[in-house]
Design a binder for these strands. Sequence first.
DNA 1: GCACTTCGGCAACAGCGTTGCTTAAGTGGC
DNA 2: GCCACTTAAGCAACGCTGTTGCCGAAGTGC
Lengths: 354, 354
Amino acid sequence: MNVPALRSHNAALVLDLLRTAGETGISRLELAERTGLTPQAVSKITARLRAEGLAAEAGHRASTGGKPRTVLRLVPSAAHAVGVHLDRDELTVLLADLAGTAVALRRRPVDLGAGPGPVLDAVTEEVRALLATAPPGGAPLPDGAVLGAGVAMPGPLDHRSGVPGRVTGFPEWAGHPVRDELAARLGLPVVLDKDTNAAALGLALRPAAPGSFAYVHLGTGLGAGLVLGGAPLRGDRTGAGELGHQTVLLDGPPCGCGGRGCLEVLCLAAVARGEPAEAARILGVGAANLVRLLDIDQVLLGGRVVLAAPEAFAAGVREVLAGLGLTTPVGLTTGRDAVAEGAAWLTLAPVFGK
Amino acid sequence: MNVPALRSHNAALVLDLLRTAGETGISRLELAERTGLTPQAVSKITARLRAEGLAAEAGHRASTGGKPRTVLRLVPSAAHAVGVHLDRDELTVLLADLAGTAVALRRRPVDLGAGPGPVLDAVTEEVRALLATAPPGGAPLPDGAVLGAGVAMPGPLDHRSGVPGRVTGFPEWAGHPVRDELAARLGLPVVLDKDTNAAALGLALRPAAPGSFAYVHLGTGLGAGLVLGGAPLRGDRTGAGELGHQTVLLDGPPCGCGGRGCLEVLCLAAVARGEPAEAARILGVGAANLVRLLDIDQVLLGGRVVLAAPEAFAAGVREVLAGLGLTTPVGLTTGRDAVAEGAAWLTLAPVFGK
DNA sequence: GCACTTCGGCAACAGCGTTGCTTAAGTGGC
DNA sequence: GCCACTTAAGCAACGCTGTTGCCGAAGTGC
């Protein structure tokens, strides 16, 4: 690392603290304490950030016997990013500001099975329309205000090259250079990642997020996004989080993956049989395995099947954990746009050194 | 991060490259390429390291039409660390040099069940004896040459505070300040960690180690050390790697942990029944779960039970992985001192920024 | 009204890696 | 044997980082 890299490292550190402070804001001295830098260094860094329009002063704290601290806040409108959630049957595109808040959103049905050509046409159209109209009622976005686009889709795929692998049931996507093609079409930097990873990233960057947690997604399939020590775990082949094909029943029913007794098969079979309590129990066993293996701080449940009966699933999972003496909190994700928001974070995160 | 921190960061970066280059050595220009620093910066850094005695010039490369590159090497004898493996029935202490090579070793039987008092007496005695006699035939160690001691023992424990939890079958250790007491007795900085974590750390720091792997240990129990992206995963409660209590047989035989169908119970039962092939198959299922969930690059098997029939276990695990279409390499750890060597790395690793 | 406390900017500074140049030490053509 | 060329590595000057010392600004409380 060299001196310019040190500079941007520290700027990102300060920006991230401004971000997590949210609308409450944070003073220069608090920034100094949290970063370990001297107050004078923080003054210089925040002066640069203010000059760039990324931060602004916003009132004062109460005095404690001397000059009151000046509160600084992130300026969310200083930059934006596009988040694209390309699901099997639906396309969601949204524009997020620097704080990750969605300021505009478009949605339309798609069929992944139609292949990359027509689907990427649809993505391009929707993103262009999104940028042309957003923000609603505000001034049009100036040049350079959109940092890029993050695209989340079902795995398997390779996040480094931005190329999908053999998506189950959608063979025409395998090997298609989705990231590079979209980058060329949109004229923006594009990042591609698995849907569960994007959702987990978005959850990890919430101000009160625990350091390590698992986002367990039960929808058309079963997958997880793992966040360990604040960072999403992807693995070299973007394969991490394949919770659905964990063997939890030796010599159990066969699965299309070649294995037997896979968590996904058992859990979805219970759902199909109309036994939600059993599905929740099986999901709980999978969650307990995660908690014990990875020593995580929290389990977050999401996905269509879970959100159809959220409290029942949460209670079922909690019961399994409690039965093993685990006190790990079990939460629920809200809203259907978690993946699209996380996709926007794929582009925003580097600004904050994440 | 401030300027002095930047300096030591880069020094650690260079030291780590010198370490992984081993006896082959590495030239200044190669260091510059690998670190991204300019050759001149590398020259300054290596000059400081040479002045401190941590690095030395060692010959030249063949010329490629100009001045031949000067080869630099780590000076392993520049510093040492103590590694302590405190197992249920045996105590191993060794002295490792800066390259992690054991230069002296002592071993004696102990009984963890005797409680912290007599056992820590034994540790103190053995470490003192080790330092008094080592290195054999060489000059006595100068002051400050021993950076500290790493202690590895069976979990559960808290690596941050250096205090064991309720070790199964050894309740008198729970809450005993092992790290602080040993630090006071030895007059050295002490780091405490789980045996599997220490072994995994040592394996992770071998020059050719993959970025992500699992060290699966089958001995008196079943545990794993997880290395993800080059760094051991410990978790906030040092609980990561609890592979033994993964449920792999829903509603299977009960386990002392409160669960059912735990991998450890099934695997050890197969061993006890004299069915090593079945034990290997079960272990393979556990390994496959790890590979799929974490997208790791390699599985390394170790522990007394495995090492009693190493090739049979490796073959059995490979077969399960292959049956699932996984080509992840399965290796074996050699030698009974892997944990003690890893324990020494607990102290050495920070020198190299690890 | 004044002493005191606390915050934050100005100016000078030490030290980082970088740049431009020089010297050292080889190869290979003639 | 000489010389042009190539490559490696150190010296000196430099830009820029965060730090230190100091001072004015802006509050509180006797």
